[in-house]
């Protein structure tokens, strides 16, 4: 069974139809890259999947849980909304770390709030809550270590380079163990010489078998890391296939044009 299933997603902003019926699914442990020129709808698709935008019609299922269904008019409870939200994680192009918190706090905050709330509901004793919270801290330190920033735990985002900030953002998303981790052009805001450190973290996650959906302009990286590449054009998926098929034997005319334009640049 696919871990992410997107069915017939449509999205319109005013009179502009940005997504014109998107269908695709990905299996557990797969890495799928989404490429396409700007305005093709890649980011909007990602935002619909992660719940930042509500699609006009269609259905999205993550790990067997329907997180969006336009035919279901029932109003979701707060808990259900949060449950849906936590199915996916998102790493932004502009990092969006919380500037007033240290690296460690950025990573632990959301999980801590979640655990505190759970403890309140279950009325668990104080020391149990404390134990669970210090557990979070330990996990967070391990994750931060895995993105290579264990010496920056107490630093504030403003003291880090863009690449380091983006790695913290990845650690922050990993902390909630989403079933599908999404990346929205994770290296587009970085200097070219720093993109490598972020890409190698993502590559490592791919090797560990994380399910990831990556919107990117790094064609070489997409070629190397993905199991499947999706080319979007004008609000539809114009072509999809293995990296070799898409990059080396493109069938779609728009894709051929797009690839030759990016290669020329």
């Amino acid at each position: 069974m696919p871990v992410l299933e997107v069915l017939n997603i449509h999205k319109q902003f005013g009179k502009t139809e940005v997504l014109k019926g998107i269908d695709f699914q990905m299996d557990e442990g797969q890495v799928v890259s989404v490429i396409g020129s700007s305005g093709s709808g890649k980011t909007t698709l990602l935002r619909c999947i992660t719940g930042l935008e509500t699609a006009d019609c269609g259905k999205i299922t993550v790990g067997g849980r329907t997180t969006f269904d336009s035919t279901d008019n029932r109003k979701l409870t707060k808990a259900e909304k949060r449950e849906n939200q936590l199915c996916t994680g998102l790493v932004f192009q502009s990092f969006n770390l919380f500037p007033q918190y240290t690296v460690l706090r950025n990573v632990t905050l959301a999980k801590e709030l979640l655990v505190k709330e759970e403890c309140k509901q279950q009325k668990c004793p104080r020391n149990e809550m404390k134990a669970r919270i210090s557990e979070i801290e330990e996990t967070a330190k391990q994750i931060i270590d895995s993105v290579g920033l264990s010496d920056k735990l107490a630093n504030y985002p403003c003291e880090l380079s863009g690449g380091q900030q983006q790695r913290v953002a990845i650690a922050r998303a990993l902390m909630l163990s989403p079933k599908v981790l999404c990346f929205d052009e994770p290296t587009s805001a970085l200097d070219p010489e720093i993109t490598g450190e972020v890409l190698s973290v993502i590559r490592k996650l791919a090797d560990e078998g994380r399910t990831m959906l990556i919107v990117t302009h790094e064609m070489g990286f997409a070629h190397e890391v993905s199991n499947e590449v999706v080319f979007m054009s004008d609000g539809v998926i114009a072509e999809r296939g293995t990296p070799d098929e898409v990059f080396d034997h493109p069938k779609n005319a728009r894709l051929q044009e797009f690839l030759s334009a990016t290669l020329r640049a």
């Binding site: 949060r82 932004f92 919380f98 905050l109 959301a110 709030l113």
Partner: peptide
Amino acid sequence: SKGQYEAGQVLGMTKTQVFFK
């Protein structure tokens, strides 16, 4: 920036938590 609210949202925080925290 809108990104701060969105970051809070995708991390599963409620609107109140995003505002206060």
